[in-house]
Design a protein around this nucleic acid. Structure first.
Lengths: 147, 147
DNA sequence: CTTACTGCAAATAGTTTGCAAGAAG
DNA sequence: CTTCTTGCAAACTATTTGCAGTAAG
C-alpha cells in the first residue's frame, strides 16, 4: 500500500462549505473500499450495518453531492439505476460480463486518441467519455450452451 | 434515398411468432423516422398524435419486444431513463452536447481495435460496446461564460 | 376460433422533496 | 447560536403487471 494519493474528503467538503458528517464519511469510505460499481441500494445496505438509522435519502443526497464535488463517478450500465465508484485520477472504462455480472476495469490509450479524433472532426470540445463493453468472461464462456 | 436495406419488421415479427399490429408498426415507424435517440415518453407523445388510444404500457411492451428482436438499440446517456434508436447495421457511437443536448453519431475503427484488444487481454468474448462522449458542440462552446 | 395483444388501473422500483428535529462549526 | 444536514413520510418519475376485452392469424 502506498501513501494516500487523494486529498482528504473532509478537506474537500470544507472547501466547498459543506459539513463533514459521520454519514458522509461512512458512505465515502464504503465507496472507496468497495473498489467501485456500487449502486445506491447496495451502499445503503452496507452503510446500515454500521449506522442503522442512516436513511436512504441521505444516501441519495450524499451521492449527488459527491458527484458534484467530483469525489465519485456515476456509471451507466445496462440497468435502470446507476452505479458509483470513487473518482480515480486515471481514466478507465468497464467491461461487464453478461453471464455473471462481474465488472473488469481497463485503460486504453486508444480512448484519448478517439476523443481527440472525434472531437476535432465534429468541432466539439470533448470533456468526458464513458465506454462500456459487454461480453462473456473466461469462466462464463464455457457455460454458454446452458443459456 | 436507397433501397431499404432491412427486412420488413412485419417479417421479423412473423418469424418470431409475434403479431404485427397497428401499434407496433406505428411505433417502429416513428423510431425509424426520428433518426434515433427517442425516449419512451417522447415516442408515446408522437404515437398518440396518430393513435390517441395507444397506451404507454404498449409503448414499453413494444420497446422491450423490439429490443429483444434486435430491431432497436437502447442507449444509456446520463439520464434516469433510456433512449432508443432503430438498430443500424453499422456500429456507431454517440457524442452528446452538454449545452443543448444535441446528439451526434460517429463511427470509428478504433473501437473494433479496442474491443479485440481488451477482450483478448482479459479473456472476454466481447459482444457489444457502448461509447458515449460528452462535451460542448461548436455553437455551445461560445456561450460557455454564461454557464 | 384460439391465443396474442392492448388499454386501463394499480403496483413497483428508483429517486426526490418538505419539514421538523438534530448536529456541525 | 446559526445554518446545514438528517430522518421520516409523502411525492414523484420511470416502468411493469393483472386482467378483461379486442383483434390477428
Amino acid at each position: 500500500m502506498r501513501a494516500k494519493p487523494r486529498f482528504a474528503p473532509s478537506q474537500i467538503l470544507r472547501r466547498a462549505r459543506r459539513r463533514s458528517t459521520s454519514q458522509r464519511s461512512l458512505l465515502l469510505d464504503l465507496i472507496q473500499q468497495a473498489g467501485g460499481h456500487l449502486d445506491a441500494d447496495e451502499l445503503y445496505r452496507r452503510a446500515r450495518e454500521q449506522q442503522p438509522r442512516l436513511s436512504l435519502s441521505t444516501v441519495y443526497r450524499s451521492l449527488r453531492l459527491f458527484k458534484q464535488l467530483q469525489l465519485i463517478d456515476e456509471l451507466h450500465f445496462e440497468e435502470d439505476h446507476h452505479h458509483y465508484e470513487g473518482h480515480s485520477p486515471r481514466e478507465h472504462h468497464h467491461l461487464v460480463c453478461l453471464g455473471c455480472g462481474r465488472v473488469v476495469e481497463f485503460e486504453s490509450p486508444l480512448i484519448q486518441q478517439l476523443k481527440a479524433d472525434v472531437g476535432g472532426r465534429q468541432g466539439f470540445k470533448v470533456t468526458s467519455a464513458e465506454l462500456n463493453l459487454a461480453g462473456l468472461c473466461p469462466r462464463c464462456r464455457g457455460k454458454k450452451g446452458s443459456v
